[in-house]
């Protein structure tokens, strides 16, 4: 097999995997849950996006963030650009510091992810407050915690899938 086609094939399937997992994250965000479980639902889309930008920062995840944020806005019926804006910030920060982030330990990275999610939460809370007068609640911070808890497992799973797609 010639090296170039091999390279192309690798890129194709990684890209397919990327979009597939991002779409799956969107579906997970739509699953109706009730009661306290609803408060705990992690922000899947942001987590998966962080993973992919971290894996391939040179691929510029900004457009991906913008596009999938827009899809989420359509699905949630929120203001167009609401989720895009906050995801763009995540994608930019992760892309900029990807090298440093990858050098840190596994657990430290989980904390960084938590900080990113918290920042994202503030942005969205601000937009919601400005647009519809919805006051932020302390419970809204719970997805950040569950995000931190879910992140290591999600990373392991996606690492596994990513490694297989490379073959």
């Amino acid at each position: 097999m010639n090296r170039r086609t091999y390279h192309n094939k690798w890129h194709m399937s990684a890209r397919v995997l990327r979009h597939l997992t991002l779409l799956l994250a969107l579906v997970l965000m739509l699953v109706p849950v009730h009661g306290w479980l609803k408060l705990l639902q992690p922000y899947w889309l942001a987590l998966v996006l962080i993973y992919w930008v971290l894996e391939a920062p040179e691929r510029n995840g900004l457009f991906t963030a913008f596009f999938y944020g827009l899809l989420l806005d359509v699905l949630y019926g929120s203001l167009l650009g609401n989720h895009s804006l906050s995801l763009l910030v995540i994608a930019y920060l992760v892309g900029k510091y990807a090298r440093q982030f990858r050098m840190t330990s596994f657990w430290q990275l989980a904390l960084i992810v938590g900080a990113l999610l918290l920042n994202d939460l503030f942005i969205r809370a601000l937009i919601d407050w400005l647009a519809s007068g919805q006051k932020p609640r302390i419970q809204d911070m719970l997805p950040v915690l569950t995000g931190i808890l879910v992140w290591p497992w999600l990373k392991l799973l996606l690492d596994h899938l990513h490694a297989r797609s490379r073959r």
Partner: peptide
């Protein structure tokens, strides 16, 4: 530059939100 693209897209988002809020462009 990533920063340029970021700022451009960010601006697009804010513009989109304002327009979606006030007009029927959404």
């Amino acid at each position: 530059l990533p920063l340029f693209r970021f700022l451009l897209l960010e601006l697009a988002c804010i513009l989109l939100m304002v327009l979606d809020y006030h007009t029927h462009i959404g």
